[in-house]
Design a protein around this nucleic acid. Structure first.
Lengths: 364, 364
DNA sequence: CTGAAAGCGCTTACAG
DNA sequence: CTGAAAGCGCTTACAG
């Protein structure tokens, strides 16, 4: 049996009006509290609504008012914990106003992003929050020009027709490096994400800031990974260890080779005493690779992440990291689209250092 | 400047019709390919659409056709990797048909779930997929009766007005236990989720199936955790270790106390040789706690998870686990709502064992 | 093959 | 304070 055939036709304003003995305009007025309605009439209408189980049809309303109670959210990857924690914050804010969150993943593909944004616009969303694939904001500008408010998420301010919100990555990265330098580290590796992503560039700048500000002589090496993932972090550290003769090359099956036993005295000079990872997922992979090689955290190598996703506190060595105010970032992004009048705004939130157990003074 | 004031008014069918010199009905016909339209006329209309950058307004369309190109998805927790990987599968299927996914988290609260479902229904969604909070499906039935197709996700078949899709948890759990018994394990701990969740009960039944089928004498202990999280898994193993005298109690700050050194001979008899965790997150926490105590995986204790979330392969010891066809589960759930005619269907998919490095023959 | 008209469910000036 | 009517953008019988 086809589902569509089931079920009683739901009640409409017209049905409510008839039952209450008033006009549909009056029903609408009590629904919206727009004009003063007589006490007695209001009660009759409310009783009718109750009796019929009437739920206002959002489509009809949207057609009239021009906007559907929905906000579109376009993210790069649905399975990225940082985005999802931010999405949870947006959801919280949107629910307050009875809005719905339309969520779609672009898989970092600009074409998919364009499709998604246009679909949202065609559906009369109240606004769109987009974590942009790259710096080409053409389609975002296009829908903004069509009157759809957009907020750029985790992205810097763009020319005046769109809002933006992000954490200060540069300052956060500087904090991480200053923390390490403060502990006494002088040989530091920065495992960065791909350079074409804005976050990578900002965090690298912050690393240099931190070093400059410390006034210390720091030996810094930077490795650019292909993505912000655990797999890349693991492979990156593995390459480093192979280079130092501390591990055999990765098996072709992608499963790492068991570590050789290792004594502390055996750690070569080239090995950094601290690794700063551009996000927690990279740090997670790095931790695995270090552990495979029998290198202890933080005794042999200190590790710092970025984001403070939920998992960070649960890792086998709880991770010291730069915490983004992730939930708040999401909440504010949604709020920018809901509080009237909707204007172009730019917000930068401050990250904070969260000390856990993966950092300590360097060995030796 | 308020954003709402910006931008040119977007083109409507009327504008296209005027430019092409035809009626709006004809424009609609070429848009929907419903009736044969003259070749020359079609070209004129298409040119006009192109020139005006016309995008069909989904709200007007929805009001007329009765359904908005959107599917509502209600999950228990937006930051749960299993749900998000499933949501990615739904998103993939929905995008194919230009549908949008409205995603909302109920935080396992029945009241929130009711609100979410009613909101979706009021928005004229094509259908709803819901991962139900508990066994009270009253509101799901309510919207089904109002004509909104619903599919129960990760939930068993309900009485005939709703579709359902899930993996066979019971069979999966049996596989896990049979794998361990096959390796020679006879003392097994099952770290289960809360008993009020259907998954926990099914997986426990599967554990018993596996033991019964093996014909071996197995010493099984079962510990029920408060939730399917890493934190709970970690705490559960920690309690076990404290009970065996292998670890100091957890510090009040929630940070575990450093492990005491431990020799293999020192492992007490009461310690299970294998732990089966009701999901990968629990296994992740268990791994951390074991590592803290200096217990090796798999040499001292074997560990099996459930779900095969992305992280499973990246853990410090890559996790042997029962893989749910998560993406497919999501894809099929969405497909059930999109392929016409929409009928009530029930699907059960089979999980599979994925062997990685966290299981081996027992010590001794 | 094409057009004119009705209508989906709601909100909002406009009269009264 | 309340009602009648117009109209948001589209689709679809119904005529021609």
């Amino acid at each position: 049996m086809a589902i569509a055939e089931r079920g009683a036709r739901p009640a409409r304003v017209k049905d409510v009006a008839r039952l209450a003995g008033v006009s549909v305009g009056t029903v609408s007025n009590v629904l919206n509290g727009r004009r003063s309605v007589g006490e007695e009439v209001r009660e009759r209408v409310e009783a009718a609504i109750e009796e019929l189980g009437f739920v206002r049809n959002a489509t009809g309303r949207a057609l009239r008012t021009g906007s559907f109670p929905m906000v579109g959210v376009s993210v790069l990857d649905l399975t990225n914990p940082f985005f999802m924690e931010a999405a949870a914050g947006m959801d919280r804010r949107l629910r307050q106003d009875g809005f719905v969150m339309a969520l779609s993943s672009t898989h970092s593909d600009a074409g998919e992003e364009a499709r998604t944004l246009r679909t949202f616009a065609g559906q009369g969303v109240r606004g769109v929050v987009v974590s942009p694939t790259d710096t080409d904001l053409a389609v975002a500008h296009e829908i903004a020009a069509r009157g759809v408010p957009v907020v750029l998420f985790d992205s810097p301010a763009a020319p005046d027709d769109m809002s933006s919100i992000l954490a200060d990555d540069r300052a956060g990265a500087a904090m991480a490096v200053e923390h390490l330098i403060g502990l006494g580290h002088r040989r530091i590796l920065f495992l960065n994400g791909p350079e074409h992503q804005r976050q990578s560039r900002s965090r690298l700048a912050g690393v240099h800031d931190g070093i400059a500000r410390s006034g210390e002589e720091i030996s810094l090496s930077v490795e650019e990974l292909g993505s912000f993932t655990a797999m890349e972090g693991r492979a990156g550290v593995r390459r480093l260890l192979v280079g130092c003769g501390l591990a055999a090359p990765m098996g072709t099956d992608g499963i790492s080779v068991p570590a050789r036993p290792l004594t502390v005295e055996g750690l070569p000079e080239e090995l950094p005493t601290a690794i700063f990872c551009a996000n927690d997922l990279i740090a997670f992979g790095a931790m695995t690779a270090l552990r495979d090689a029998g290198i202890r955290i933080p005794e042999d190598v200190s590790l710092v992440g970025f984001d403070d996703i939920e998992m960070a506190a649960q890792m086998s060595v709880p991770l010291t990291t730069i915490a983004q105010p992730t939930d708040e970032l999401g909440w504010v992004a949604a709020d920018m689209l809901l509080t009237e009048p909707v204007t172009v705004r730019h917000e930068t939130l401050m990250p904070t250092l969260v000390r856990r157990r993966s950092t300590a003074a360097p060995r030796g």
